[in-house]
């Protein structure tokens, strides 16, 4: 089955999340195709993490529908989540599970067949092989982040959701992480990542969704964003970001 035959990896249809009188996400529509890398950017409080947590099934939308790989998250949550991996911004690990045991636990949770060779390969790929018997207390922040990513990749998700994936990583690890994201995308995994590192988003993402106070300000490729206004032509994502976020009037959807 080609990517074109497969259902979208992620569909958000009018997703809204309200906390009392505050609207964290406001009628967000989004479709992410298999193999696509989507960057979620916006200032603090824009609703990025709430959006990612809603996609992961942790936060329940006040309105709208979320589908993962064609499965509705509200009506068929177990099957929908089987297609998903979510890496939160802070790597929360079990204090008394070693690196390898974390992987085994996740493999069991997602029913991964013959997980050991896969665990070995992933730990080697993420340079954690030497730490396979270490507890989280013995790991640096970057290593913990890499372990969280290793756990997320174990079951070959069709949608990988990464909240600030490069926090705490050294330059080598950042390069490796970028390679991993590219390789997964090339293999057909859709990736949704949020980051404040706009150069990373520019370099890695096929499309960018810019959020402000829960509303989509712009959605499209870097080139499409550059065509939103004449003055954006040839400008970096950072320039576009600052111009749009500082602008009270949303510029619209570049993909429309």
């Amino acid at each position: 089955m080609t990517d074109a035959d497969r259902p979208p990896a992620l569909v958000l249809d009018g997703v809204t999340k309200r906390y009392g009188t505050v609207t964290a996400i406001d009628a967000l529509d989004l479709v992410v195709a298999p193999g696509e890398v989507l960057g979620l950017v916006g200032p603090n409080g824009a609703g990025k993490t709430t959006t990612l947590r809603a996609i992961a099934g942790i936060v329940r939308p006040s309105a709208g529908r979320i589908a993962l790989g064609g499965r509705d998250l509200a009506t068929d949550p177990v099957d929908a989540k089987r297609r998903l991996s979510f890496v939160p911004d802070e790597p929360h690990l079990f204090d008394y599970l070693t690196v390898r045991e974390h992987c085994r636990f996740v493999a069991r949770l997602y029913d991964v067949a013959d997980p050991e060779p896969r665990i070995d390969a992933l730990l080697a790929e993420l340079e954690l092989a030497d730490k396979r018997d270490a507890l989280p207390g013995e790991l640096s922040r970057g290593m913990k982040q890499k372990l969280a990513v290793a756990c997320a990749l174990l079951h070959d998700p069709t949608l990988l959701v990464l909240d600030e994936p490069l926090t705490g990583l050294d330059p080598l690890a950042i390069r490796r992480m970028k390679a991993i994201v590219r390789a997964r995308a090339a293999a057909g995994t859709a990736v949704v990542l949020s980051s404040h590192l706009l150069t990373l988003v520019e370099e890695l993402c096929d499309r960018v969704l810019l959020l402000r106070t829960g509303r989509p300000v712009a959605l499209g490729t870097i080139e499409e964003l550059g065509r939103l206004r004449p003055e954006f032509a040839g400008r970096s994502l950072e320039d576009v970001f600052i111009a749009l976020v500082g602008d009270p009037a949303p510029a619209g959807d570049a993909s429309r």
């Binding site: 992961a56 939160p88 929360h92 996740v106």
Partner: peptide, 15 residues
């Protein structure tokens, strides 16, 4: 729950 339980279990395919 504990924070790791939220991180690992809430997004996992479990009821």
């Amino acid at each position: 729950f504990s924070p790791p339980e939220v991180a690992f279990l809430f997004a996992a395919p479990v009821t």
